[in-house]
Every structure is written in structure tokens, then in C-alpha cells.
Amino acid sequence: MNVTVEVVGEETDEYDLPDDATYADLIRAAGYHPQEASALVDGSPVPGDRVVDADEVQLLRLIKGGATDSVPSDGSA
């Protein structure tokens, strides 16, 4: 099954998945962990254990970046 995946605010790619792939499998195929991104179909979140049943999916990253850039190099905050 071919699925077009748009990572919201980033890139869009296509993935070829087995017919029994879940949305968690799709999130992993896109390079993310299921705890750091949610799959959206027609704007609504879908459970990770549901079998992929859409041709177009949006991934919404829930976790991005970190605090390392916001801490001054001298350790003061």
C-alpha cells in the first residue's frame, strides 16, 4: 500500500507499507517514535494500533527539539 505522509510544517514523502501495517508502523517508517508523533486522517487523530486505511496521512510531531540551545554556555539561566 502506498501512503502519502505530510509531516505538518515539514516535508511530504511517500511510503510503501505492507497491507497489515498500523499507524504506529507508519510513524516509525517516517523516522519517528509513536510517542513523539500522532497520525491524523482528515484532521482527526487515529490510534496507533489501527491498520492504515488512508492514502493520505498527516503526522503531527508532539515533541521537537530540546532545551540545549536555550541554556547559556556559561551555565547561567
Rank of each mutant, 00 (worst) to 15 (best):
L26W: 01
L26V: 01
D19M: 03
D25F: 04
T22F: 04
L17A: 04
P47I: 04
V41L: 07
H33M: 12
T22M: 06
E10S: 08
G66D: 15
V51H: 00
P18G: 15
D53P: 05
D25M: 07
E14H: 00
D20W: 01
P47T: 02
L60Q: 13
D16R: 14
L17Q: 05
E56N: 07
D53A: 15
T12D: 02
A67V: 14
A67T: 12
E36I: 04
A37K: 11
E56Y: 04
P34Y: 00
V57K: 05
G43I: 12
G48T: 11
E11F: 03
A54N: 08
E36W: 01
A29L: 03
D20F: 00
A37R: 13
G31D: 03
L40D: 04
Y32P: 03
L26Y: 00
R61N: 00
P34I: 09
Q58H: 15
V57R: 03
P47W: 01
T22E: 03
V41A: 09
R61W: 00
A24L: 00
G31L: 07
R50M: 11
E56S: 06
P47Q: 09
D55G: 14
G31H: 10
T68W: 05
Y32V: 00
T68Q: 13
V57I: 08
S44D: 12
D20V: 02
S44F: 13
D13G: 01
E10I: 02
A39Q: 02
D19N: 07
E11I: 08
E36D: 14
A37V: 09
D19H: 06
R50W: 01
T22W: 07
G48I: 10
E11W: 00
T68R: 15
D13V: 01
Y15R: 01
E14L: 05
D55V: 09
L62E: 10
A21V: 05
E10M: 03
T22K: 11
L26T: 01
D42P: 01
R50A: 15
K64G: 10
H33G: 13
D53T: 09
L62N: 12
Q58N: 13
I63T: 15
Y32A: 03
V46Q: 09
L59E: 10
L40E: 05
A67N: 12
A24F: 05
R28V: 11
D69I: 03
V57L: 06
S38P: 01
E10L: 06
D49N: 15
S38A: 13
Y15N: 02
V52W: 03
